[in-house]
């Protein structure tokens, strides 16, 4: 756990810092990947930038919609830099909508664009795992295994380290891309989604902070299982389509 990096009088929030560095590396790798898919690196970086800015604005609007009274008392906080005033669902929805509009206007090929963005999503997954490691979120459940870590006076699974390792391996397996010409468009991205859902489903079992449904079932595993099934179905569909063409 490393929530704050202290440099003299300056306190840097490590979780946010790790996430920002990962995003920056992800954008750089995606731009490099653009030429593998014969896309414009400029258009791709514009797409990411528009999605990120729209995501932040959408997240703030979503938060204001959830707590209008809080902002009625402090209207200046509408433009506050405080990252706590963001609604994740609103942000993701706004980012997707803005990216879709930009992509349609620039006539970007949907699946090729997602394949090109794979290293960006891969670095995002690594950044989120590093961020959780720094903040202590997504901690593991108790264990007496030899590699357990001492967290709040209890030996626990190093669940964040499992997640970092899985995200790193996933990106390393899928990037740089191999045999692009033989693979149908979208297969790299959908494979990434399937592997990510697969390791989330597996690793969630070692978490100590799971939200439970039906008494004992971990909700994140149910979501991951649905995403995994959809990704495998999608993979099969695009392979069959490519074969038919």
């Amino acid at each position: 756990m490393l929530p704050v990096i202290q440099i003299g009088p300056l306190s840097l929030q490590a979780p946010g810092l790790f996430l920002l560095i990962s995003l920056w590396v992800g954008i750089t790798l995606a731009e490099k990947n653009a030429k593998n898919y014969k896309l414009s690196a400029d258009q791709l970086s514009n797409l990411i930038l528009i999605a990120l800015v729209s995501g932040v604005v959408g997240a703030r609007i979503g938060y204001i919609a959830r707590f209008p009274e809080a902002f009625a008392s402090a209207p200046r906080n509408i433009v506050s830099l405080n990252p706590g005033l963001l609604d994740i669902t609103g942000g993701i929805a706004a980012a997707i909508i803005a990216a879709m509009i930009y992509g349609q206007r620039k006539e970007l090929l949907f699946w090729d664009t997602l394949d090109t963005l794979l290293p960006f999503f891969g670095m995002l997954a690594i950044g989120m795992a590093l961020s959780n490691f720094a903040s202590g979120n997504a901690f593991g459940m108790e264990t007496d295994l030899p590699w357990a870590v001492d967290l709040w006076n209890t030996k626990r699974h190093p669940s964040q380290i499992y997640e970092i390792f899985a995200a790193l391996v996933t990106l390393n397996v899928l990037y740089p891309p191999k045999r692009i010409a033989q693979s149908p468009a979208g297969s790299a991205f959908i494979t990434f989604v399937a592997i990510t859902a697969g390791y989330r489903l597996f690793l969630e079992a070692f978490r100590g902070d799971s939200t439970l449904i039906f008494g004992s079932i971990r909700s994140a595993q149910v979501i991951a299982l649905i995403v995994l099934a959809l990704a495998l179905w999608g993979l099969e569909k695009i392979k069959m389509q490519a074969k038919a063409e």
Partner: peptide, 29 residues
Amino acid sequence: IVALGLAWTLFSADKKGNSTAGLIPAPQA
């Protein structure tokens, strides 16, 4: 793969309440 995932979800269900940390004092959410 999906069947294995389903089996793992059921096998790793939190029957002992391991994922409820709210009873242990620690300065963490």
